[in-house]
Design a protein around this nucleic acid. Sequence first.
DNA 1: GCTTGACCTTCCCTCTGGGGGAAGGTACAG
DNA 2: CTGTACCTTCCCCCAGAGGGAAGGTCAAGC
Lengths: 255, 255
Amino acid sequence: MFRIGSFARLGGLSAKQLRAYDELGIFRPVWVDPSNDYRYYSPAQLPELRRILALRELGLPLDEIGCLVAGGDLREALERRRAELERERQRAEERLRALDISIADERGPDVVLRPVAVEPVAVMHVAQPVDTALYELESHVRDAGRRAPRPPGAIPSEREIFVPVTGPIPTTDRIGYRRLPAVRVASIIHRGAYEGVADARRALLRWVESAGLATVAPMRTIYLQFGAEAELRVPPGYVVDQAADFVTELQLPVA
Amino acid sequence: MFRIGSFARLGGLSAKQLRAYDELGIFRPVWVDPSNDYRYYSPAQLPELRRILALRELGLPLDEIGCLVAGGDLREALERRRAELERERQRAEERLRALDISIADERGPDVVLRPVAVEPVAVMHVAQPVDTALYELESHVRDAGRRAPRPPGAIPSEREIFVPVTGPIPTTDRIGYRRLPAVRVASIIHRGAYEGVADARRALLRWVESAGLATVAPMRTIYLQFGAEAELRVPPGYVVDQAADFVTELQLPVA
DNA sequence: GCTTGACCTTCCCTCTGGGGGAAGGTACAG
DNA sequence: CTGTACCTTCCCCCAGAGGGAAGGTCAAGC
C-alpha cells in the first residue's frame, strides 16, 4: 500500500491530480482510512492508473474517461476520438495548403474562407449588371420599405443582380424574390476600377484550386461601397476617391 | 465612410472585434470623430481588413498580426507558423497511430510516453538481477544515508541493477555511482509473476515499433513495489497477494 | 422635436480543460 | 519531538480569444 505521495511519484503525476481524479470518480484509492481520510493505493492499481493516463495522453477529456470507468464503451470512445483527431489533422493540412499559397504570394493572404448567411433578396435579370438597373431595383425595394442594410450584388453568370431585403416583396415581371442559400464562400476583395476585377477573379479561382476545394455555385459579386451608408460624414480634408474607393467582393461558394 | 456597425457587417466580424483590433493597434479606423469618438472606416480599408482576417484564419495570434502591421517580416511569420502547423499535424498523426494501436487492442491502451528525470543511482553489476543483490545494494545505500524514495531497477542488457540515491555515495569495487540520463520513455506496467514480464516486453516493443519511434538506450526495468513504502498500513481484511501485487515497469527510452 | 437605434467606455464573464499554490489544521515516521 | 506528509477549501492561472450588460451620448428618420 502506498500513500498518495509515493503513489503519485510512481505514476508520474501529482498528488493533486490523484485527488482530483478521486473526486471525479475516475480513479479512486483502494482504501481510505476513515480515521484520517488518508488515501491508500495498492501496487495492483498501477496498471489501471496507467490505462487512464494513456487515455488522457490520447487526448480524451477527463470526464469522458470518467464515463468509460463507469462502464462506457471503450471502443466507441476511441473511435470517436479517432474521428475527431482525423478532422484535426485534415484541418491542419487545409491550413498548411492555405499557408503555402500565402507564402508564395508576396503581398500576404487576401482570400478568406467564410460562411455567408441566407440572404433574402430582390432579383432582376439584366443584360449587363449596370448601375442604372441596380438603382432601379433598389428604388423598387425601398418603395416597398424592405431594404435590408446590406450591400447589393450580382451573379454575373446568371445575368442577375440582387438587392437584400428584409422580407418578401411584391414581384413584377422584371423583379423577383428569392433567398440566396447560406454557403461557405472563398472571398476576395478588389479595390479600384471595375476593370481590375478580372485579375481578382483569376486570383480567387487559383486560390480555390490550390486549396483543393470544389465550387458548388456560381460566383457572386458584391458591391460593397454601394449605398448611402458609404457616404456618411467625412473627416475634414478627406477626399473621396471614387476610383480607389470602389470596392468589390467576389464570393465563390465552395464545399 | 462607414460607421463601425455597417463596416463590421461588410467585413464579416463584430463591432466589438473591430474595437478590440483598434485598441490592439492591429487595425485602426481611418478617422475618429474627436467630438464623439465615433470610429469611421473607409471602403479602401476593406482589403487591409481582409488580409488581417486571412492571417487570423491561418492561425496567427492577434498580437503577432499586430507586430506584422507594425512592420514585421510577413514572410518569416508565415514560415514560423507553417513550422508550427507542421508540428501540429505530426502530433496528430502520432496520436492517430497510438490510437489505432489502442483500438486494435481490446483491453485499451497500456503504454504511455512520458519523460523521466535524471536519476542519480548506485549501480552494481550482477550475473542476474536477483533480489538478494538488490537487497545488498540497497543496504549499502541506506548505510550511507543516501536512499532516495524512488523504486530501484535494472538494466538487464547491461547486467546492472540500480538504486536511486540522493547524491554521490562511496564506491566500492562492486558498487558504482552514476546518473541515469533524463529521457523520454515508452513505458508499460506489468503486474503479476515476474515470468510474465516477457509478454509485456513484447507488447512494449511492438508498440514502439507501431508508433514509429526509435529506441535510443537499453530498456530499464523498475521494481515498483520494492521497498518499505509498499508496506504501509493495510486496511482491515486486506490480503497482500504477493503475486498479484508484484508490479514491474518496463521503460524503453525513445527519440 | 422626438424616438429608436447606434455608438461610446468600462467591467466582468465565458469557454476548454485542465493546472498550481496557500492557508489552516491533523497525522505519521524516524 | 520535529519535520514532513496529508487533509480540505478557496482562489488563481494558462491561452486566446469573444460576448454581455451597464450607463451615458449621439445620429437619423419621421
